[in-house]
Simulated assay, not measured.
Amino acid sequence: MLEYRVSARRIDAHESVADCKDATVVLDTDIKGRRDAFNPAELLLAAVAACMIKGIERVTPMLKFDLRGVDVRLIGVRQDSPPMMASIDYELIVDTDEDDRRLELLHQNVRKYGTISNTVAAATKLQGVIRRRT
């Protein structure tokens, strides 16, 4: 089994940081919010997006899938009581000339083998579509 390690610390009432490997991410932990950092919900959405993109990077060579680029757009809906992400909708936009069947095969692989997306899907409604960039 793999292990992942991240450490986070409060800098002050407006900022915290998370460290992993040689990277540092500024966290929006200010009660009023910050425009220049991701809050916890946005970090969750970014983690799902990164998982999907990494999954695409992993399977495209195996599928011999011709790919020029990928965009992921996510919308998370938060409920208040109890506070949680009630749902996450995503759109995978793929720049490719592959046919629709191959595009759907890519989507199936992303859904089946994503560590973070599978974890999130077990906890909330995760649904989305894949489409070709026009």
Score class of each variant (00 low, 15 high):
46 A>E: 05
48 V>Q: 04
49 A>Y: 09
50 A>E: 10
50 A>G: 15
51 C>T: 01
52 M>A: 04
52 M>W: 00
52 M>G: 00
54 K>N: 11
54 K>R: 00
55 G>M: 11
56 I>W: 07
56 I>F: 02
57 E>I: 06
57 E>D: 14
58 R>Q: 07
58 R>F: 12
61 P>Y: 09
62 M>Y: 10
63 L>V: 06
63 L>M: 15
65 F>A: 12
66 D>L: 13
67 L>V: 07
67 L>K: 00
68 R>I: 01
68 R>F: 10
70 V>A: 00
71 D>G: 07
72 V>M: 07
72 V>E: 08
73 R>F: 09
74 L>I: 01
74 L>R: 03
74 L>D: 00
76 G>Y: 12
76 G>N: 09
76 G>R: 10
76 G>L: 13
77 V>L: 01
78 R>C: 14
80 D>N: 08
81 S>W: 00
81 S>F: 01
84 M>I: 07
84 M>A: 13
85 M>N: 10
86 A>D: 14
86 A>K: 15
86 A>E: 15
88 I>G: 01
89 D>K: 10
91 E>S: 15
93 I>N: 04
93 I>D: 07
94 V>I: 15
95 D>C: 02
96 T>Y: 06
97 D>I: 11
100 D>T: 06
102 R>I: 09
102 R>D: 12
105 L>D: 13
106 L>D: 12
106 L>T: 10
107 H>E: 14
107 H>N: 11
108 Q>H: 08
109 N>D: 02
109 N>Q: 14
110 V>H: 12
110 V>K: 01
111 R>P: 03
113 Y>Q: 05
113 Y>L: 12
114 G>S: 12
114 G>R: 09
115 T>L: 11
115 T>F: 04
117 S>D: 09
119 T>Q: 09
119 T>E: 02
119 T>S: 12
120 V>E: 05
122 A>Q: 14
122 A>W: 11
123 A>R: 13
123 A>V: 09
124 T>K: 07
125 K>D: 15
125 K>R: 15
126 L>D: 14
127 Q>P: 08
128 G>T: 05
129 V>N: 13
129 V>W: 11
129 V>G: 05
